[in-house]
């Protein structure tokens, strides 16, 4: 049958597309249909089933930080996945507690995904809560001041580039009205996040830098699973 493709261009085209689409569909369209956990946000209240907690969406400041993370290409050198290997669970654990293995339901709100392929620097999947703001400030100004031998670049412009959240808060007001009307849980969560952020920032909201956004984002990483104490930073 494939012999016919020697002389017929149409045959060659049809056959190569059919063969391609078998594998193409089986590995892209089918898996999320079979494996529902790819699309369901993590939520667990039962301690016997592993770490408890739930995955929340990011607020406006955290999203701005995530955008900086994407823009500066942090993901070329830092992965965000604790693999099913002792090398990962032990290395990225905290005070003798192993880091929980990353599961698909922890990444449902991520776009673009930031799993990464290369670890020139350490994995960041469970970095949230590990270092405080002061540590990050020193580290982003010059990583080598804190970690001797590091080859990470300095990012001084994060401290001068402003983050403007007025657009985000305006949008949040519209979302809050819709949430009150529809009771859609996704909208209710987003409205609550915006309200919390507004209360927390107060007048500081007008004076935020990309550094603040970046730290806010980093502190969320890996915290859907409640596996370590909050505010227990590395000294």
């Amino acid at each position: 049958m494939l012999k016919k493709a020697d002389t017929s261009a149409i045959w060659a085209i049809v056959a190569s597309l059919v063969l391609f689409f078998i594998g193409g569909l089986m590995t892209t369209v089918v898996p999320p249909m079979v494996d529902k956990s790819w699309g369901q946000p993590f939520a667990n209240a039962d301690k016997s089933k592993g770490p408890t907690g739930h995955l929340r969406r990011l607020n406006g400041l955290e999203l701005a930080g995530r955008a900086v993370y994407v823009r500066e290409g942090c993901w070329y050198c830092h992965t965000q996945q604790i693999r099913t290997l002792l090398a990962d669970t032990k290395r990225y654990g905290w005070k003798g507690v192993d880091a929980p293995i990353s599961t698909p339901d922890e990444f449902v709100y991520d776009s673009p995904h930031m799993f990464g392929t290369k670890r020139t620097g350490p994995d960041l999947a469970r970095i949230g809560g590990r270092y405080d703001t002061q540590w990050h400030r020193t580290h982003f100004r010059n990583p080598r001041d804190l970690v001797k031998g590091s080859i990470m670049p300095a990012f001084p412009w994060l401290f001068t580039n402003k983050v403007d959240l007025t657009g985000y808060f305006a949008e949040a007001d519209v979302i809050a009205q819709k949430a009150a009307a529809t009771k859609d849980p996704a909208l209710v969560e987003q409205a609550a996040l915006a309200a919390d952020l507004k209360a927390k920032l107060g007048p500081q909201a007008a004076n935020l830098t990309e550094f603040d956004a970046m730290v806010a984002y980093l502190q969320t990483l890996g915290r859907a699973k409640d596996w370590r104490e909050a505010n227990d930073y590395e000294k």
Binding site: D6, A15, I22, T27, R83, L85, I101, P104, T117
Partner: peptide, 26 residues
């Protein structure tokens, strides 16, 4: 050369997930 071409057409596309071995994928 036919063996090479047609087996490439069928086999290659299935392998993408090997970039996430041990990772959070089924």
């Amino acid at each position: 050369s036919m063996v090479g071409f047609w087996s490439l057409a069928f086999v290659y596309v299935w392998t993408g997930a090997h970039h996430m071995l041990h990772g959070p994928i089924s």
